[in-house]
Amino acid sequence: MKKFKFLEHTADVKFQAFGREIEEAFENSALALKQTICDNVKVIASKKKTINLKQKDLESLLYNFLEEILYLLDAENFLIAEISKIKIDDKFNLRATILGDDASEYEFTNPVKAVTYNDMSITKEKISDYGRHKELWTIQVVLDV
């Protein structure tokens, strides 16, 4: 399974991220955002941040989760390396631990202005993986750049 892929968009950045569980799809969305922020810069996972969110639906949860990554970069100079833990419950509570580093240590130019709801979708489909039935979550997001 591919973690994420970028799609065509006239002006902004559109991606799809995938996961066998919703948490994995969220995690891969964060990685697609990271790639847009700093391309292929290898970020050392030396610092830790936690995110706790409660929202009204999955889309709002995703929007706020990704926005938090942008907030941490601008306000706390924290550049994401990876998601170490993430849990989403059916009441739309999210708890996540993000690992990353001091952004000043890296050369990059974040073009991302904001996460948008435009064309956002979170879908789940049944897939057959070597005869075994599994679920595949697909997340689609447009970033304003």
Binding site: Y71, D74, A75, K113
Partner: peptide, 14 residues
């Protein structure tokens, strides 16, 4: 405020 306070006089990217 917290996002902007350290960005005065910066060009941004894109």
């Amino acid at each position: 405020i917290k996002r902007g306070i350290g960005q005065l006089g910066t060009l941004g990217a894109g």
